[in-house]
Design a protein around this nucleic acid. Sequence first.
DNA 1: CGCTTAATGGGACTATAATCCCGTTAGTGG
DNA 2: CCACTAACGGGATTATAGTCCCATTAAGCG
Lengths: 204, 204
Amino acid sequence: MVLSEKPGNGGARPGGRTARVRTSVLEAAGDALAERGMDGLDLADVARRAGVGRTTVYRRWGSVPALVADLLQDMAEQSQPRAETGSLIEDLTANAHLVRETLAHPRQGPLFKAIIAAATCDERTARALHRFYEVRVREWAPCVERAVERDELPEGTDAHEVVRAVSAPLYYRLLASGGALDEETAERSARAAVAAARAGVYVR
Amino acid sequence: MVLSEKPGNGGARPGGRTARVRTSVLEAAGDALAERGMDGLDLADVARRAGVGRTTVYRRWGSVPALVADLLQDMAEQSQPRAETGSLIEDLTANAHLVRETLAHPRQGPLFKAIIAAATCDERTARALHRFYEVRVREWAPCVERAVERDELPEGTDAHEVVRAVSAPLYYRLLASGGALDEETAERSARAAVAAARAGVYVR
DNA sequence: CGCTTAATGGGACTATAATCCCGTTAGTGG
DNA sequence: CCACTAACGGGATTATAGTCCCATTAAGCG
């Protein structure tokens, strides 16, 4: 995790400017991805938005997927708030609304689309994406585990799979079938996940 | 209508060669997309594979998303077999297995990924994709409608939404969270859809 | 506060994708 | 079977993405 050791072996310089460049480039990349999508992304344009030389972007990231992978790692690090109301359906509904708001957001939605598109083109980006969702799922799994402890759900229920089941219908709409990402859809996906979990579908 | 004016739309020649070119180009495009993904797609390469001049591909389709949109229309036309066993869970499990086999297929899986990536970049391609799934969903909806008639599911159940619920977890794995697209996953998504539908989640 | 050098930035340079031009091929209708 | 022309194919041309070179800037350190 540590970027560099003591300046005895390599002499890396992660401080000041380098970090500032990374921040502004990732932000500019997010903006550009949200606006133009992943195929319309020009690294020279990203550099211009970030107020940085083209050469720098090409040297440090080299390709669109590599840049997206770094962006994802950055996004995974900023953690999201999690609900914990004591009721499974309320917790999962809160999660569904959070996901829905993100995907329906004028900047975040297109950004996620672009990132997922980039992940289909590049294995490293795909792995970064999978890690991102693993982090998010892990944050919400305790809601389900508590419900198992309260005997709301059968013993042995796969908490991660239940959390994923809440997101799946929303992403399916966003990427495949189309249709509105409204609040009713969010609530329905939460209720569906709970109904299936109660029926023991996610028992390992 | 005046017959002697323009034959067809304006002297168009949809016969023989033109149709042959379209077929071979779409097939080559499918191959190339499955192999290299949507960003690695070079129209010149597609032309070479199809045994067709580059100029032809650029003239008739012009861009990658336009080509993908045409490919999708072609795919939507070739209808898939549908199960009808008389049992909802068996029908939806058959559907889930069909979807799973497609997405896990060494050619079809990457092809679908690439198509969905292309749809995130281009509005027309996205609409073609939505139509594609609408056609597929419409084919399977009767299974659910029968189940409603048999009182297996509550009155007013949205058949289309139930069918979509079967696919959603599989696509979510393919595109977002990662993980194996195995038969257990397919069966679980079918059972989850049935459990949620029985609970009245998809009642309009 | 200077010294060393990692990291940056601008511009020239190269590679590849997309377009244009024009002669050739082959559906279509008579 | 022939004439007409839509549609095609190859090569030249142009546009754009990506790389390289080298002078300049500033982080890390004594």
